[in-house]
Computed example of a mutant assay.
Amino acid sequence: MYVLRDAAAVRAFLSAGVDAELQGLIDGRTGELAEYTDEIGELVTFIVVQAGDAVEQIDAALGFGILSNRFDAVPFGAPGFTPSWDSLTEHTGWFELTYVLSDDGFGIVVYVPKAEAQASELLAMCSRYAAADAQREVQP
């Protein structure tokens, strides 16, 4: 897993020859936020999950459980579960979860690869809610 907390970390990560789609996603987000700050780390931390990362590692980086609602702790799959991310976007090879954590707009963006070696419950949650969001967008 990669935790990118500032512009230098983002530049180093992107210069290491990462997946082209992921590079475009991170470049896009940093570009959107660049007009608001000189130091991207003041507004966002990027977490790039790698295949094989344990959910507990992701939780530690986030500061809360990715598979549960961060406000009421109801876990994915339990009755009453509602997601606590602010947006979930499905891309060709990645899921992008955005959490806005404070009134000043600071947030965490988590990129989850659609890799078969990834935690199956995390992929199941992302797939389920991305599909539900897509269905809501199609309905009038």
Rank of each mutant, 00 (worst) to 15 (best):
E32I: 08
E39I: 01
L123R: 10
L123F: 05
V49Q: 03
R136F: 02
L25Q: 04
D19T: 09
R5L: 04
A16S: 15
Y99T: 00
E96A: 00
D86W: 06
E116F: 06
W94P: 12
F106E: 09
Q23M: 14
T89F: 00
P113G: 02
F95A: 01
E121R: 15
E116I: 14
V18G: 04
D38Y: 01
L123C: 03
V10L: 09
G80M: 04
H91P: 13
P113H: 01
Q23R: 15
F95M: 09
E21W: 01
A20Y: 04
T82M: 11
E137Y: 05
D72G: 00
F106Q: 13
G52I: 08
V48D: 02
G17Q: 06
F81H: 14
V44W: 02
L122S: 11
K114D: 00
L22F: 10
K114S: 01
G17R: 07
I40W: 00
L25I: 09
V74E: 08
K114M: 00
A34Y: 01
G80W: 03
Q118G: 10
E56W: 00
R136T: 13
L67S: 09
L33F: 05
V49L: 04
G77W: 00
L33Q: 06
E21P: 12
G65M: 02
Q23I: 04
H91G: 05
I40T: 03
P113L: 02
S102N: 15
D53T: 03
V44E: 10
F106G: 11
P140V: 09
H91V: 10
